[in-house]
Write a protein that binds this DNA or RNA. Structure first.
Lengths: 180, 180
DNA sequence: CTCGTTACAGACCGTTTGGTCTGGTACGAG
DNA sequence: CTCGTACCAGACCAAACGGTCTGTAACGAG
């Protein structure tokens, strides 16, 4: 955990934390932004892999569509705890806020990563819901994404790490009530 | 519309857009952050005033608790359009993302403003819901806040201004389904 | 009229920071 | 052994930017 925020995290700080030199860093990365791209790309891949594993488990357990959708939502609640606990790196969280808002010159890799991310989410949720066609899957999966980002910000603002899970739980309960 | 993001918005840009000089600026504001504090404070006040007016209107129209809660949610949908249309200034939107995430050294005025903001939201939503005690008001009002911030980020990421309203509508429909 | 104060204009400065450049070392190929 | 190449260390640089400082004009009070 170096410091928070892309801009607030100086290259020098990364060097100090990783114990490398400037020469080494810029030998492997063309720019600071290049590192961010690599981190985000890897984070997206890891996140999707974990989510997919979770969903596969739900399918194999023979859960019904509604339960599978709930499992989908629960995944984020658990992820929230992990993120707020700091196990996951600081550059990982709230990618949207970081990249889309902070830095005006958004790089293609990250924008594309977000697109892929959302598409896969929608696919997984659609698969989970199966024959339940009474739900706008795309809108709902995006909403999870939105809540995730917003909840992170609120948790940071209040200083209460539990706030993130709580907010995601609110969403889950709403969806639960609607689906049942 | 100068530029996006607190850090990305240079003082020079503000001067150019407002047609003033550096001397004038720093005569009125102690620092760049001071301007942000003032803007946020004013934005919160304006926002709350508008929301209160809307809720008062709903009460005077004799709407039932559920309808009043829906009116509460609809307020944000309309606000979303206004914000994405650019009528409202760029520094106004996504205060949380701006201040809590971007700049590590958060100033007291803004943190406090966010607290007041959320408290008042909760009060207004509680009043709207009236005798309906089957809802966790605090959690729900915070959830609106969360969705608002997250939806803004998504809209910025996708480049589609309509995305913000769409996401807020998803939340409203969920709440609608639960309340009815 | 004058003098103090407020309001402003804009040149200038110090720091921060991403990125470069020079020099050096390990090492595999021939 | 030698030479080319990948890898790395860290001094150095140039641009950006928030903030200061000097100078000046309006202007109300006495």
């Amino acid at each position: 955990m170096i410091d928070n925020g892309f801009r607030a995290t100086t290259v020098e700080a990364v060097l100090a934390a990783s114990g490398t030199s400037k020469g080494a860093f810029f030998h492997h990365f063309a720019s600071k932004r290049d590192l961010a791209d690599a981190l985000v790309t890897q984070y997206v891949a890891d996140d999707l892999a974990m989510l997919e594993a979770g969903m596969t488990a739900a399918f194999e357990a023979g859960a019904d569509p509604t339960s599978r959708a709930i499992a989908f939502l629960r995944y984020y609640e658990d992820l929230a705890d992990e993120i707020m606990a700091g196990t996951t790196g600081c550059l990982y969280t709230s990618v949207l806020a970081e990249m889309e808002l902070v830095d005006a010159a958004t790089s293609d890799p990250i924008t594309k990563a977000v697109v892929v991310w959302r598409e896969r989410y929608a696919e997984l949720l659609a698969a989970a819901l199966g024959d339940r066609t009474d739900v706008d899957v795309d809108a709902l999966s995006d909403h999870v994404f939105v809540t995730f980002e917003g909840a992170y910000l609120l948790a940071r603002s209040t200083g209460d790490p539990g706030e993130m899970r709580r907010q995601l739980a609110v969403l889950r309960r709403l969806v639960e009530a609607v689906l049942r």
